[in-house]
């Protein structure tokens, strides 16, 4: 499988990554080089092989459903490039 320029533009949109028009062609080439290389996985017989879902044999831990942290709006917004009264500021999203 390989990607064309439209696919590169579509993935960039999905990834919310602005891609200048002159970067589309080099990116197409780089992605296809990598995709051609990973293509060799097609040789492997994976019939009846389960996909790995857990790296080490361990059941996912459960914990009590209780609040352990919170109530720190200043700390949460401290790194925001733009905030007001402990709220994040974004461009208007609802008309």
């Amino acid at each position: 499988m390989s990607v064309d320029k439209d696919t590169v533009r579509r993935i960039a949109k999905l990834a919310r990554l602005a891609l200048e028009e002159e970067r589309v062609e080099p990116m197409e080439r780089e992605l296809n080089q990598i995709l051609a290389w990973v293509e060799q996985l097609g040789e492997v017989n994976v019939e009846d092989v389960p996909a790995m879902t857990s790296v080490v044999a361990q059941r996912l831990k459960m914990r009590e459903d209780k609040v352990t942290d919170g109530g720190q709006p200043e700390a949460v917004t401290a790194n925001a490039p733009l905030s007001e009264d402990n709220f994040f500021v974004v461009p208007k999203v609802v008309e």
């Binding site: 990607v3 696919t7 999905l14 995709l35 492997v44 790995m52």
Partner: peptide, 20 residues
């Protein structure tokens, strides 16, 4: 790309099987 609709099984799931 490898997680996008239509490619997820061919790439991601296959890779996770190879990982097993």
């Amino acid at each position: 790309y490898v997680l996008s609709a239509g490619y997820y099984d061919a790439y991601y799931i296959r890779a996770q099987k190879v990982r097993s």
